[in-house]
């Protein structure tokens, strides 16, 4: 079973994605801020990380910078969840090496599944 880590501070969004992806047969773990997320990455060793950008303690971009410094996490694929969907934000994410991105108000739960499948398969 493929493992996905959700790092998102908004509980309902976390619940919704978790539910959708569990139904699709993925094993899900979640973290509510960047710091927690980094810890969970090391313990849970997910195949893919879904990472929110705006979060307390450590934001998504800072988490990615931390990941770069860590041999264990450097290659871990990330899909970011952008709030604004602004080109500046997407550009920054691409620069940091994200695999894909989701824009909060624009995507449906199905799109999350599609993008996840696209990255790591079923």
């Amino acid at each position: 079973m493929k493992k996905i880590l959700l790092v998102e501070d908004e509980e309902i969004i976390l619940d919704l994605i978790k539910r959708k992806l569990s139904q699709e047969g993925y094993e899900i773990a979640s973290a509510k801020d960047g710091e927690e997320g980094l810890k969970a990455m090391k313990q849970f060793k997910p195949d893919l990380v879904l990472l929110d950008v705006v979060m307390p303690k450590l934001g998504g971009f800072e988490v990615m910078e931390e990941m770069k410094k860590d041999d264990q996490l450097r290659e871990m694929p990330v899909i970011i969840i952008s709030n604004s969907g602004q080109p500046v934000e997407i550009d920054k994410a691409k620069e940091l090496g994200v695999k894909d991105w989701l824009i909060k108000t624009e995507f449906d739960p199905q799109e999350v599944v599609d993008k996840v499948v696209n990255q790591i398969g079923k």
Binding site: E10, I12, I13, K104, T105, D108
Partner: peptide, 11 residues
């Protein structure tokens, strides 16, 4: 506002 609106949309 976008975050709660997204949550509503998805639900």
């Amino acid at each position: 506002l976008r975050t709660p609106l997204s949550a509503i949309k998805w639900t």
